[in-house]
């Protein structure tokens, strides 16, 4: 953040952009949803656990989509699950981010040939960060979350209109609910 500390007659003050201040706060309270579909969920649990300790980046898990900023697609996504995930995504408040964790969520991975598995989370959700691995280690997941932080840092918070209207360019699912 490029801000200047100035000395005034009644004490010091900081000159900077409001965007930067807001983004600083947002970046350091990145809450992710406690939601895993397959093997990667185990590594997701370990990431929140005592050794990796995602808490030190201000990342804590929330059980409900309405309180979380990041949806981590942790594991294989089946067609039966895809509409449920889309529903969860639409319940999250803007601004929201999606991480595709592991090969299955990236492209279908090992199960690309399977009749039941969606070949990548980006076929029905806008994905921000892809993390390779089967499953990725907790270090990789933390790096993915830090990439989201970097993205937040650069966002023009005030100029951008955050609405819950659907982006027509986003992939969609038919017959939701």
């Amino acid at each position: 953040m490029d801000a200047m500390v100035e000395q005034g007659p009644e004490g010091s003050f900081v000159l900077g952009k409001v965007d930067d201040l807001l983004n600083l706060a947002r970046k350091n309270s990145l809450w992710y949803m406690l939601f895993g579909t397959a093997c990667c969920a185990i590594e997701l649990m370990q990431t929140g656990g005592p050794r990796s300790d995602a808490d030190r980046f201000g990342m804590v898990f929330r059980a409900t989509p309405r309180q979380s900023d990041t949806l981590i697609l942790a594991g294989t996504i089946t067609y039966k699950m895809a509409s449920r995930i889309r529903l969860l995504y639409e319940q999250m408040a803007e601004p929201k981010y999606v991480i595709a964790m592991g090969s299955c969520a990236n492209t279908g991975g090992l199960f690309q040939e399977s009749y039941a598995v969606v070949n990548g989370g980006d076929l029905f959700l806008p994905v921000d960060v892809y993390i390779p691995g089967c499953p990725p280690r907790s270090e990789s997941l933390i790096e993915g979350l830090m990439l989201i932080q970097q993205k937040i840092e650069k966002e023009p918070w005030l100029k951008k209109a955050w609405t819950n209207t659907k982006n027509p360019k986003d992939p969609q699912i038919e017959g939701l609910l």
Binding site: T76, T78, S114, A116
Partner: peptide, 10 residues
């Protein structure tokens, strides 16, 4: 069935 990956067919 929300995690049925078709392991038997593969």
């Amino acid at each position: 069935g929300y995690l049925h990956r078709g392991l038997e067919k593969i």
